[in-house]
Design a protein around this nucleic acid. Structure first.
Lengths: 138, 138
DNA sequence: TTCGTTGCAAACCCTTTGCACGCAC
DNA sequence: GTGCGTGCAAAGGGTTTGCAACGAA
């Protein structure tokens, strides 16, 4: 649980061209202080843990807005739900296929030496590397 | 469209411990001759293109069975649907984020030089590398 | 007969959408 | 007053499940 103050968050939102309404600030606070990769549903629960403050639709809309504005990244490892990654620096992921746990890998540790030629008339957009693991004990 | 005969498919199914019923053979034929990465829905359409031969539930059940038995791989790039990859050899993917097209990259072209240390008490299961692209023309 | 497989429809879950209300400027 | 943001509920779409019918050994 990282300590993040409201002022930092509102500044961050504004810097990305997002009007910092109270709901958006609450969602951003939950996301950036989590240090994990929460799903929309987990965020909804985190924000409303004390009392209902934000609706489900607003969480989804807000996350899509953050995504569009480059404030968060989407991590797609489980077909049943999308995870959101508050870390936008260059990095990759370990994914435990049994527990569903996701953790970061610094990009410097797994860089690809040579980018293969892109097919057709395409331009590079990014690379996702997911290293799948399983718990060691049977 | 690869040429694949029924006999090859039934042998393949049996080798993986799957009883080759007529529906399963049809689904496997469609999948292995496609040379793309079809979704469950596309396979359903392909198998039933002439007349209804297999139900939707059977397609999903069969694909999950194939997955479990290691006959196909799952490719998760789009949260809205799972794609199935008949190529189980070691390879990775280009994914066009606009058109949704997926194409293979031979593993030798993008190998990771050093595997980073796994977190906690985990064992390696595999690596997925997805190189995202966009069409070049604006 | 017996057990595994199939088909249908309904259930499920996550996510998106439509529309009215509310707040800020 | 105008426009964006929000909440609610309903719709949407892919996937799974329950159960009866079916089919091969």
């Amino acid at each position: 649980m990282k300590r993040i103050d409201t002022h930092t968050i509102t500044g961050l939102l504004r810097k990305h061209g997002i009007c910092p309404t109270s709901q958006r600030v609450k969602i951003a606070m939950a996301l950036f202080s989590s240090m994990t990769h929460p799903s929309a549903d987990q965020l909804l629960g985190a924000v409303n843990s004390r009392k209902a403050e934000v609706s489900k639709a607003t969480v989804y809309n807000t996350l899509n807005l953050f995504l569009e504005k480059g404030l968060v990244r989407e991590v797609i490892v489980d077909p049943s739900k999308v995870l959101y990654d508050p870390n936008t620096s260059d990095h990759h992921h370990f994914y435990d296929i049994v527990t569903g746990e996701l953790s970061d890998i610094d990009a410097s540790k797994v860089s690809i030496p040579v980018l293969p030629p892109l097919p057709g008339n395409r331009i590079f957009d990014g690379v996702d590397i997911i290293i799948r693991t399983r718990p060691a004990a049977a």
